[in-house]
Amino acid sequence: MTALLSVERLHIGSGGRSAPILDDVSFAVSDGETVGVLGASGSGKTSLALSLLGLLPQSLETRGRVVFDGYNMLERAAGARRNLRGRRISMVFQEPLTALNPRQRVGAQVAEVARAHGERDAQKAMRGAVDMLHRAGLTDAGTRALRYPHELSGGERQRVLLAMALLLDPALLVADEPTSALDVTVQAQVLQLLRTLQRERGMAMLLVSHDLGVIATTCSRTMVLHDGRVVEDTATPQLLAAPEHPQARALVDAVRPAGRGA
């Protein structure tokens, strides 16, 4: 099977000032696969997520290739890359309040994704948006679609972001700390939703988090990122049972209940 996404020797410099943000990172994601990227803050995991969509700041020096759908996302012309984003590859961010436009109703923001990809019929786009908000678990989606972001709770805003990301049925969802800003009870609901939607659609997912608990309950494979390098890339049960790299061991031990030796 050929990979949906393949990252080859990706290097992101930080302008020569200090160590590179990402250093020689290579991995692949197949259709329908769920992969976790586990790392502490500063490990480079957000830069990795952004680079997959070609969203890194222009000022950063990048080497290597990020091949998605046969195209190198680091090189593609802006227009062509935009056409892939939202349709074939989508992203949800950590902080749903800043990722949404504060002055636009949330339903319109979801519908805008369809319009940006060629949907001419505004009413049809809005119906699709409300339907997607409903499937993303927003209760009373029809009326909530008319609200502004600040009128919704954190969990509801994250559902709006998910609806935007999943509206066009992408082949790969990149989720960067999608639940870190949420209460644990809301986090549990959003994770459940992510798992359900991923399974229903057979979509591949790259879930970035510092929390092994979030990744281990959602992803079949886990990569551990440390100081810009992938120090471990293995099946999740294998990581839980026998983490090899010291950083991986530290991250596993941080959530291991007392009395359970490795």
């Binding site: 644990v184 009870t185 994770l191 608990g213 309950t217």
Partner: peptide, 12 residues
Amino acid sequence: QALLAAIPRIPW
């Protein structure tokens, strides 16, 4: 019970 259920249950 809800708070307890929200803790991710890692399949050790």
